[in-house]
Nucleic acid binder design. Structure first.
Lengths: 144, 144
DNA sequence: ATATTTAATGCAACAAAGTTGCAAATGGAT
DNA sequence: ATCCATTTGCAACTTTGTTGCATTAAATAT
């Protein structure tokens, strides 16, 4: 987690660009996402911002970030939703997230591999694809 | 949901093969999986078997089926774990699940596309892949 | 700068999902 | 039929997520 000055500037831009009022909690949470090297679960945010941001606010902030397309969810095999910032052109509503997600089994970080595009697959007759998600589990760069 | 006589026979075999005692709840739940055309969430099982099987028993049954490799989890974007029977050679512990999962946005069923193998992807330097998961969202055969 | 309006926050109370310990019931073996 | 091991159901609990409402803070207009 690295709080560079650039992030603080970005935070304001992103919020305003999405017509969200710039509040303390939103800044804190968005900064977390920008400075994090992996995806974040609700619990991560609560823990980090302990005694600062109410549980309910975290839920509502994540929800509005989702609606605006600032963050996206990453599928998981366990029961925890993880979120990451959208680095592509995610407009409100329609959201493209065509990159592979990597889940490290050592540090259990989830990393967006922006450069790795999910390959297309040929489906059996009658199945009309709309969106595809891919998670690769393994060992990440830091954990080798 | 279609309870063919074949399923009832299979249920016994599968349980015994995995050294699990053949109990009422296990039979009911395993039958559900065999006769279901899609994956099942914990809630589905509870609802279907309402007033028959205790919540806790459902949790524990799913857990032991997982450990034995009888069922596997399917990644999801929302917060619900879904399970499906392993039709491949899933041995205890190590579990291979190399097929694509299809999630219908109409009926929200999750279907194992056993015939569609998840393609390999080339990862950036330093990432060692171990397992991959793929979910395709769209419209299924029944919902066209 | 200050007042006004609008939206976001925190609190409380609740609902849902998942976990744990333990006594009673059931299955498998003798 | 009897015994032992396992499984089940119940109760109590923790964790996670939701909703309504009064308070507070941010954005806009004055």
């Amino acid at each position: 987690m690295n709080h560079s000055p650039t992030n603080k500037e970005q935070v304001n831009d992103i919020l305003k660009k999405n017509q969200l009022s710039v509040t303390g909690s939103r800044k804190t949470i968005l900064e977390m996402f920008l400075s994090s090297d992996g995806a974040l679960a609700h619990a991560d945010i609560e823990k980090y911002a302990a005694e600062k941001i109410d549980r309910v606010t975290v839920y509502r902030t994540l929800q509005s970030f989702m609606e605006k397309g600032i963050i996206h969810t990453i599928p998981s095999v366990d029961n925890s939703i993880r979120y990451a910032v959208c680095k592509n052109d995610c407009t409100e509503g329609h959201h493209h997230d065509n990159h592979v997600h990597f889940l490290c089994s050592e540090c259990s970080k989830t990393i967006c591999l922006e450069s790795v595009v999910i390959p297309e697959v040929k489906l059996p007759r009658g199945f009309k694809p709309f969106e595809r998600q891919m998670i690769v589990t393994g060992v990440c760069t830091d954990c080798q």
